[in-house]
Design a protein around this nucleic acid. Sequence first.
RNA 1: GCGCUCUUAGCUCAGCUGGACAGAGCAAUAGCCUUCUAAGCUACAGGUCAUAGGUUCGAAUCCUAUAGAGCGUGCCA
Length: 591
Amino acid sequence: MDFLQLETYLTEKLQKITDVENIFFSANNEHADLSTNILFLLSKKMKKSPKEAFEVIRSNLQDDYINNIEIAKNGFLNFHLSNKFLHEGLNSIINDKNVFEQNNEKVNVEFVSANPTGPLHYGNARSVYGDALANVLKFAGYDVTKEYYVNDAGNQINVLADSVFSEYLKLQNLPELELEEQYKGEYISEIAQKIYESDPNKWNADNYAEHFKSFSMNYIIDIIKEDLRSVGIEHDVWVHETSTIRHIPAAFEILKSKGLIYEGKLGEIQSKKGMESNQTLTLFRSSQFGDSEDRALTKANGEHTYFANDIAYFYDKILRKFKWLIIVLGADHDGYLKRLHSAVTNLGSDIKLDMKTCQIVLFQKNGENIKFSKRLGDALGLREAAANIGKDMFRFLMLSKSLDTHYTVDADKIVKLSMENPFYYVQYAHARISSIIKSYSLSDYNTPNHGMDDVSYNAEANKPNNIKEHNTKLTEHNIELTKLHNVKLDYNFDLQSFTPSMIDLLKILLEWRKCIKSIVRTLEIHKTTNYVMNIAEKFHSIWNEGKINAEDRWITKDAKVTNDRIVLIATTSKIISQALNILGIEAYQEL
RNA sequence: GCGCUCUUAGCUCAGCUGGACAGAGCAAUAGCCUUCUAAGCUACAGGUCAUAGGUUCGAAUCCUAUAGAGCGUGCCA
C-alpha cells in the first residue's frame, strides 16, 4: 500500500456512498498525511456545510490505514495515517511490490528524427526528453519502442549529395558546383574525402547521385548515432521514409473514404509562395479540424509532399499495432501539428496520439545567444555541449525543466555552475547513503540475526555474487544490498526506530508511484527531478540532525534501531536510483 | 494579420486534476565540521505570480482582453 493505492482505495470507497467526481487528494502536506477536497464537493451537492457533510460520510471512513480524520477550519478533510500503512508501504518497496504491472499496450515514442544532413547541434538538446519519457512509460509497465524517423526521401538529401559531390570535384581539382542551397561544415569535406579515397575517379556528374546520397546519409547517420550516444540515447528502431511511402495508397484510401481527400486548388495564403498557384492538386481537408486551410498532399510536379509521406509513416506505425503514438517535435513544427493530428487520428480507431513540442533551449555566451545553422556548419554540436558538463548532468539539467519553458543556458556559467547545482545535490545524497551503508556493513551490527541477511559493501565488485533477479537495480551501483530481498513482508521493523524526519522521508518514498502515474498522464518528465530533489532535501536534513544529535543518526548505539533504519535508507537509495535510471543517469557512489 | 508557447524573488526555474500562509537553486547576510562525506544543514532576507476584468466556496493555475518575449505561418522537411 502506498499513496497511489490508498487514494484509489479511498476514492472508490467514497464514490460508493457519495457519487461525487473530481475527488482530489493531496498527499503528505504540512497539514496531514493526506488531504481531500471531498467536503467542498459534497457540501455543494448537498447544499449543506462541509461540517454537516462530514457527519454523513464519517462512519464510512473508518479504516485500518487511517489513524484519525479531522476537518480543517476551511473545510479540508485531513487524514493521519496509521502505522499499518507505513509498515506495509515500506515493505512493499523493499519487496518490489511497488512496481507497476506489465500491461501489453504498445507505445511508440518517436523523438529526435532530425534530418540526416548533419551532426546534431545543441538545438537538439531536448532530445533527452523523448528518451526519458520512454523510460518512464517502460517503468509504468508499457511496451515501449524508441523510434527515429529518417527523412531520406526529401529534397534535402539531394542537396546533401550535391554538397558532397561539389567537394569531391574540388579534390579532383575540378571546378566546384554552383549550388543554390548547400551544406557546409567539416563533415561535408570529410565525406567527400572518404569517397575520394576509395574511388578517386569513378564518380562524375552522370553517375554520382545515388551513391553520394546513400553514402553521405549513412555516414551522417553514424555521426548522429554517436551524438545520441554521447547524451545516453539509443533508439530501438530506425525507420526510413523511403520504406514507408509505399503505404500512401492504402492510407489515402482510408482518408478518401471519409471524404477528407479531394482534388482542388489551394487558397491564396499557401499558394503565394507556391510555384504555380492555379494548379489542381491533391488536398487534405485539414480545415475541417481547425487548421486554417486545407493542405497539399501533392506538388505541382506530381511528387508527394512531406505531409503525404508522413501520413504513410504514421499509418505504418498503426499497422505495427501501436496503440499509443507519441511524437516529440521542435517548437518550429507546431504549425504542422493540427493537420498531422487530424490525418493520423482518422487513419485508425482507438489511436491515442500525443504530440509534444519542445521550446528551444537557448545557449548564451557573454550574454548573447549562440546561433546555430546546419547549412553553415557552425553550430555548437550537441556532443560538445554535453561534453562540457558531462552526460549525466546534461541530462539532469535538460530534464529538470518543463518542455514549455523557453530555457536559457549560459555556456560561460554552466561549468562553474556544475559544481553547485541540483544535480550534485541529488548525487550527494545518494553518495552519502552509500557511505552510511558502507559503514554499516563494516560494523558489528551487521550480523545475520536481525531479520535480514548481512549486508556487505563491495567497492570493487560491479557484479556481486548472489544476485537475485528482481533486485538487480540495487546491485547496479556496487553495493551488495541484494540480500535485502530476503527481508520478508512481515519483517518486523519498528516504526519507533525512526525519527519524525525519517517518517517524513518514508512518506515521500510512498509517493513515488503517484509521481510516475502523474507523469504518465501529463508526460511531464521534470516531475521526476522535482521528486528526487524532495527526497534529497529530506535526506540531507536528516543527516544534519544526526550531526546535532547522535541518536538521530542512521547508525546508532542500538542494534535494532540501526537495522531498521538501514532498511529505510537502503530503500531510499533504491528509489533514488530508480528515478535516476529513468532519467538515464547513473547514481553515484562517491563524489 | 493569424496560430502555438512563455511572462512567478536580482538571475535560472518549480508550483501535482483549481485548494490551506506562493517554493527551490544560484547570488546576498548570520550561524553549524574531535562524531555516518560541509558539493551539506539551520536561520534571516527577497515576489503587485506581466496588466485589467470574469467564472468559483476558493485562481499563479480556468475564460476574455491588453502588453511584452520566442517560434511558426511553403506545392521545404
